[in-house]
Design a protein around this nucleic acid. Structure first.
Length: 548
RNA sequence: GGGUUGUUAGCUCAAUCGGUAGAGCAGCGGACUUUUAAUCCGUUGGCUCCGGGUUCAAGUCCCGGACAACCCA
């Protein structure tokens, strides 16, 4: 080929990264010599690849031959993912946002300029092609190219298979991860988008209104967690990034929006792990004139509905599930603790009337501290309990919660069954409504712990949802806020602030209501089988990169 | 915070007891008109994560650091 003698000007090595990039820059220059821009943008209207394959996947070669004579032409654009030559033929796998199709290029069928141009097209480049649909001898649906226009030169090489595995590169350079590990990664983020859309639809269909409340908060509230701090210069005020939208959403319920929900980011200034990212997405909903039992029902409906929508589009995520949505267990926290204590920690059980023994929570606390099957760290958490409720909660977290997955399974033992854990101690739930004392007496008899109308949902070892009937008594709420301040004084830096405006809102009267929160990232992890939260966040938090 | 493991070509990975840093793919040159990770011939490419040390000799051993994964708290 005569052109090459004059154009192979580079003496850079053709194989290290800098050499490859240099060669690609030179190829971009040659696009210009052939009359094309290296970064053109006038593509005109295009057909999506998926629409073409959907339309013609059933057509046999003969039918397509006929279409060819009728000049049914298509114009597509996308990234060159694979390319192979066969003498005067060239095959290119082209991918756009909708799918992939093969381009069939014959020297006979394209202008000479285009045939020459093909030498300057690399895997990774973005091109536009015009042509007719056809089937190759082997039956592969293809576009027989009549014209080709290069659109964007990729200066960096991509791996055509064996995509990058290093998780650090995958998270930092997500664009590259999406290209090279397309099937796994792009599919999972499409699934995430669908899941969020399905949740939105679920609430919209039930007459919930979607709202957006502030992310910059003057006070810490709505959850117990360490916040990020920032400063507003013009107002000269310190602000926190929200740790939860809860208190603002309930102000809206006061204002008469009986059903609201918000999907959005919250921020917690804590460590990163496979289950934690400093910014994460929650959905919170509030429904006036409902109780936490109503919300349990709608939670089951939500999860089944969202999952059905997901599997209708991405069936593969339904295979080999570690959990089921066919059946949900509802268990009280006290019964869960009793179960475990009776089986494995009899000394604690016999020490506390609540769990079937004789004494009060201090006796149980002493028994737990003497229980040598518990680790020093577990002992220190138990030691910290200052009330019967706090001790119950600690025992639940330490003894009952870890075994939910193994304890509650389908009859054949293959899948874990979701468990609603109900009726938490009041003193660990500063925004929840106290259980009606008569009702508590009916269910539990005379017990040492004051309970509230709350549940958390656990699925396959993960806490997914948190919900309660809302506390709407302003005097009670004010007292709980004061309790939080006491906790702060005694060293709890996750305690909430006293929110006087929220109390004022409650003084105008909030209808009885139930609220609900679900971790969207964790739900996506669960439904798509992701092991790390970083696999469901497009750009997970990373330590800043050194030199690029 | 502690422990374990890892970091070698653009990508995926080798390298025995401390003894010349390799392969496949990608790239580059060539052949090929129905390929599917095409094939065939030829070929280029390395600050072995960074900094010290031991040694005639270090990807390999020692010390320190960066980053990551996993486990524990």
């Amino acid at each position: 080929m005569a052109a090459q003698d004059s154009t192979q000007s580079s003496d850079a090595p053709s194989s290290d990264l800098e050499g490859m990039m240099q060669l690609r820059r030179e190829k971009a220059e040659r696009w210009k010599l052939l009359g094309f821009g290296a970064f053109a943008n006038d593509t005109g209207p295009l057909h999506s690849i998926a629409s073409i394959t959907a339309l013609h996947e059933a057509d046999d070669a003969e039918t397509l031959e006929k279409l060819k004579t009728e000049n049914v032409a298509y114009r597509v654009a996308g990234r060159v993912m694979l390319s192979r030559g066969q003498g005067k033929l060239k095959f290119i796998n082209l991918r756009d946002g909708s799918g992939e199709i093969q381009l069939f290029i014959s020297k006979r069928e394209v202008p000479d300029t285009i045939w020459t141009l093909l030498d300057e097209i690399d895997v990774g480049d973005i091109v536009r092609a015009d042509g007719l649909v056809m089937r190759t001898k082997t039956g592969q649906l293809s576009i027989m190219v009549q014209n080709l226009k290069p659109l964007t030169k990729a200066l960096r090489p991509i791996a055509k298979h064996d995509g990058v595995e290093d998780v650090e590169v995958r998270y930092r350079q997500r664009y590259r991860d999406l290209i090279e590990n397309h099937d796994e990664v792009a599919t999972r983020f499409r699934a995430r988008s669908l899941i969020v859309q399905a949740m939105r639809d679920f609430y919209s269909q039930r007459d919930f209104m979607e709202v957006e409340t502030p992310m910059l908060h003057p006070l810490r509230g709505g959850a117990t967690a360490r916040p990020f701090s920032t400063h507003h210069n013009a107002l000269d005020v310190n602000l926190y990034l929200r740790i939860a939208p809860e208190l603002y959403l309930k102000r809206l319920v006061v204002g008469g929006f009986d059903r609201v929900f918000e999907i959005g980011r919250s921020f917690r200034n804590e460590g990163v792990s496979v289950r934690h990212n400093p910014e994460f997405t929650m959905l919170e909903s509030y429904q006036a004139y409902a109780t936490y039992h109503d919300v349990m029902d709608s939670t089951e409906a939500l999860l089944r509905d969202v999952d059905a929508r997901l599997l209708a589009r991405f069936a593969a995520y339904g295979e080999n599930r570690a959990f089921t949505f066919d059946h949900f267990e509802r268990r009280t926290m006290i019964s869960l603790v009793r179960e475990v204590v009776v089986e494995k920690h009899a000394s604690i059980g016999s020490a506390w009337a609540l769990l079937g023994g004789t004494g009060d929570y201090r006796d149980a606390q002493r028994a737990a501290l003497a229980d040598s099957s518990l680790s020093p760290a577990e002992h220190s958490l138990i030691k910290r309990a200052r009330t019967a409720g706090e001790l119950l909660f600690s025992l639940y977290e330490l003894l009952a919660e870890p075994s939910l997955t193994t304890r509650y399974r389908t009859p054949d033992g293959t899948q874990s069954v979701p468990v609603f854990v109900m009726d938490h101690p009041l003193d660990t739930s500063p925004l929840a409504r106290q259980m009606d004392p008569e009702r508590q007496r009916e269910i539990y008899g005379e017990i040492e712990v004051t309970l509230c109308d709350r549940f958390e949902l656990f699925i396959d070892g993960r806490e997914l949802c948190n919900a309660f009937s809302e506390l709407n008594d302003p005097m009670d709420q004010a007292q709980r806020f004061r309790g939080q301040l006491e906790n702060r004084k005694s060293g709890d830096d996750e305690a909430m602030d006293y929110d006087a405006d929220y109390i004022r809102a409650l003084e105008f009267g909030m209808p009885p209501a139930a609220g609900f929160g679900i971790g969207v990232d964790r739900l996506v992890m669960l439904l798509t089988g992701a092991k790390s939260i970083r696999d469901v966040l497009l750009f997970p938090a990373m330590r800043p990169e050194g030199a690029v």
